[in-house]
Structure formats: structure tokens, C-alpha cells
Design a protein around this nucleic acid. Structure first.
Lengths: 139, 139
DNA sequence: TTAGTTGCAAACGCTTTGCCGAAAA
DNA sequence: TTTTCGGCAAAGCGTTTGCAACTAA
């Protein structure tokens, strides 16, 4: 029951380009990758602006921040809840075409006294790209 | 089927105390909390030693590193796969008494070409402790 | 006009690492 | 004796923030 932020958000050129970049890729990029892309269009943009806007957009529910793992966050232009696969070899993140299961929250709620509002599920292993690279290497 | 590390690990006083501290709590502490606890017994221990040993123990499969979220890692003295609940208000992590579901890996595998070896599932919301604190505050 | 936003650079916080003396085996 | 490990402090790295100028509304 958090009170809505009072400050209203402005649609700036920078925010528009950042959002566009994110909506047009499915690689779940890091903040730095977004920075490099946005720079192609707005050469003077700063990394601080990228972070600030990614935060603003995530807070507004327009994108997802995938901050599993304590190294870098990755961002997803698709804000609908869905599951991911993360490659332990290269770090890439992929979407998985699995149905989202809100009933798991209910099941979990019945086992404890916490108020459960959602869950995050991430699979890991070796991605098809790295598997191929490895089998080529070992030949 | 990862190849065993060649270098053999020594059981030092520091490592023993760190492991003991972790096995005797269920709060999924941060490295710094472990540091403070270990210092009560070994006042000269350094934070670097804590981090090195937590890494070694996690690699050896004796503990789990819960590095969801890109802030601080938390550590779990129970190395068996299980699910957690994280409070979005205070950051505490709790175990959930839900059965672990290895069959989800098979189901996910059938939807893609990646080699899936496991998954991590974390529920979130507001913990019972914070709920109580909030309702008291608003009275 | 005015309150949110930007670019810049410095600061931050957690974690890792290099060095050398200490201690397991 | 050999080889890993620990204490210390500095470095690393992704991210955040303070500030003055700028700009959307």
C-alpha cells in the first residue's frame, strides 16, 4: 500500500530513446549496452541518465529490471511477468515460452504468514549458443 | 558433473567458525553479518577472509549463495535446493516449506534448446514482521 | 514560470585482489 | 618443508548522487 509518487514524470528525448532501444531488442541488455546504443542516437547522453531512466521506467512498470545475480542488472522491455533462462557460461538471458503461474503465489501463501505478491523464477544452465561453441572447441 | 578443483582445501579455524555460524542461523545473513558474528570469536578476522571462505564453501556445495538482487549477497547454511521468500520492505529472507520441483526443469527444457540444469524460485512481498509493524504504525 | 531532467564527475557500497607472513598437512 | 591461507589495505566495478544548467509542460 505504498503511496504513489507525487512528482510527475516528463517524457524527455532521452527517456523516449532509451525506451525505444529496449522495446526493440530481446537480448535483455545491461545498462551499459543500452548506453552504447542510445549514444549512437544521442552522443552526449550520460550513463547516469541511462540508470536514472531505467529506474524510472521500471518503477512505472514499463520495463522489468532483472537483477538476479549480484553482478550487473539486465533490463527487459516486456513488463509482463514471464520466466527466463540465464546461461552460466556467457551470462545471456533468454525468454522462455512457459505460462506464468500466479497460482504458485497462493500455494506459497498457504505455507506461511507473509503477504506474497509475486515470484521470480529463473532457469539456468548452458545456452544453445555456448553448447555449440563448446562442442566445436573440443573437436 | 563439474571436475573437482585440483587444489585441496584446508580446514582452517576461520573456515570452521564461518561454517558453524552459518549452520546455526536461519536468517540467511549477509557477509557482513557473518563477519560481525565471527569477530566475536576471532577478533582479528578480516572481511576478505569471510568473502573468500564463503566463496570456497559455496563452490564446495556446503552452503548456498543467494545472490538474487544486485545489492548484497546472502548465504544459506542449508545447501539443499529449496525456495525462499524475500521481504521487499526489510530485505529479510525466509525459507518456504514448499517441495522442490525438479520436474519444472524438464518442462522448461522441452520449450527450448538450452541445456537446463536447475532453477531458482523466489517469492516476494511483505513479511509477517513488517506487516505487523505497518499496521501498528497506522493506528 | 517552475519543477523535473540532464551531463558531468565524484562518491558509494559491496566484493575482489595483491602481497607477504602464518599455519595446515 | 611445502603449499594453501589469512590479515591488511588498496583496487575494482556497477550504480548512485550532488550540482548547476537546461527544458518539458
Amino acid at each position: 500500500m505504498k503511496k504513489r509518487e507525487k512528482t510527475q514524470k516528463r517524457m524527455t528525448t532521452q527517456r523516449r530513446v532509451i525506451l525505444k532501444v529496449l522495446k526493440n531488442t530481446d537480448i535483455h541488455p545491461t545498462a551499459d549496452w543500452v548506453y552504447q546504443e542510445v549514444r549512437k542516437e544521442l552522443p552526449k547522453v550520460s550513463l547516469g541518465t541511462i540508470y536514472r531512466n531505467l529506474g524510472t521506467l521500471a518503477e512505472a512498470g514499463e520495463i522489468l529490471e532483472l537483477n538476479y545475480s549480484n553482478s550487473q542488472s539486465r533490463y527487459d522491455g516486456n513488463p509482463n511477468p514471464h520466466y527466463h533462462f540465464r546461461c552460466q557460461s556467457c551470462g545471456r538471458v533468454y525468454d522462455l515460452p512457459l505460462p506464468y503461474r500466479p497460482e504458485m503465489d497462493k500455494e506459497a501463501s498457504s505455507t506461511c504468514q507473509h503477504k506474497i505478491t509475486g515470484h521470480r523464477l529463473e532457469f539456468y544452465g548452458i545456452c544453445h549458443y555456448c553448447r555449440r561453441a563448446n562442442s566445436e572447441k573440443s573437436q
